[in-house]
Design a protein around this nucleic acid. Structure first.
Lengths: 197, 197
DNA sequence: AATATAAGTAAGTGATTACTTATGAAAAAA
DNA sequence: TTTTTTCATAAGTAATCACTTACTTATATT
């Protein structure tokens, strides 16, 4: 195998991890299987990541930059809150569908190993999402788009069920999910709640 | 170890499994650790369950009888739909809190081993829950308690996020959950949705 | 009391796990 | 060109996994 520097190898390893999880399941994510997938020796993996868990943590960091930060950018845009909320929902739903429930699988990994570091990371991501949505909803209330009688915390909790539900149904091999209309339907439903509270 | 018949041992084994999952995590659920917890030899486990997976499947069956069937009984009671809905939510939330997110942990097990039988079982339980709620909401619409403009499927999906969220937050060691008021708050929020759609 | 059966154990099985060590070779720096 | 550093590998490591085997013992039935 031709030599490559650590950065390139780290990218390859992370990509291979996601492929294995999506196609074979978490239990098949052994360092042996991982090395085989890339075409490297098993030992080489440990040159680029000190521990197997560090690969998972690096992937979680990628979720932060690929999904959370993009949602954050939209949340700060100069546009009406309802437009921003819709865009944020789209980013999240598209990311989940593109990555086939990868974040809930990472949750499963955290639950499986009862790993407090991993649990904390997942918890932080969920909290960040909540905070972003909370701010946009508050902003929509000041813009007088939505009722000022709504309990923002309750509504955000209700909202969070949508992506989590989607993740779980993807993992459980749900058929017949109309991906195209999903975002619009959920946004319409959620708008009603925000207006009519 | 004194001899006991299979029924008693099966109960002991199932209880020990739940204790290990709750206190040590799924990864510590080895047949060795399980036997040690009960005070039996490892081989004795396999006299009472053919495979380790069969223990998990038996526990899922218990979830059905302990939670789903009780919800079903309430759903069929002769009472206004809103009263029934509230009682069902309470049964579910109490069960989740009492069993510390056990069903989402079983979901994690299914996801981890990519086990189609287990996945199917979890999916069936979620589907059954949805069906029960759907019927009660429809009943509430005929009783003219709630708006007939609501899309029942969407609302049920939104509802399902509540228990799933609760499960996940329990696994991720959320602090400061006001368990007492949780049910009432969520029911109030959900009632508004059903009335104002 | 003799016998059959169910429930128990100790000590394995091979497979797999994450990770290490010793060694060598390619690439980069001197 | 020589030296140094980085990356790769083959071949380990001890630990753990679900599960089995061979055998023993308690209990229920005849």
């Amino acid at each position: 195998m031709k030599k490559q520097n650590t950065e390139i190898r780290q990218q390859q390893i992370k990509r291979a991890v996601l492929e294995i999880i999506a196609s074979e399941g978490l239990a098949q994510l052994s360092t042996r299987n991982l090395a085989k997938k890339i075409g490297l020796s098993e030992g080489a993996i440990f040159r680029h990541f000190k521990r197997k868990q560090d690969i998972i943590l690096a992937i979680i960091q990628d979720i932060r930059t690929d999904m959370l930060e993009r949602m954050c950018v939209v949340a700060r845009q100069d546009a009406p809150a309802d437009k921003r909320l819709f865009k944020m929902m789209c980013i999240q739903v598209k990311y989940i569908l593109k990555n086939e429930g990868i974040n809930i699988l990472l949750f499963s990994e955290a639950a499986h190993y009862n790993d407090s570091v991993l649990k904390r990371e997942i918890h932080d991501i969920l909290s960040s999402q909540k905070k972003i949505f909370k701010d946009v909803i508050k902003s929509g209330i000041s813009e007088e788009l939505w009722s000022d009688r709504i309990n923002v915390d309750d509504v955000v909790m209700l909202y969070m069920g949508i992506p989590i539900n989607l993740n779980i149904e993807l993992v459980l091999n749900r058929k017949g999910l109309k991906t195209e209309s999903f975002c619009k339907r959920m946004f319409a439903l959620f708008s009603n709640i925000l207006i009519n509270q």
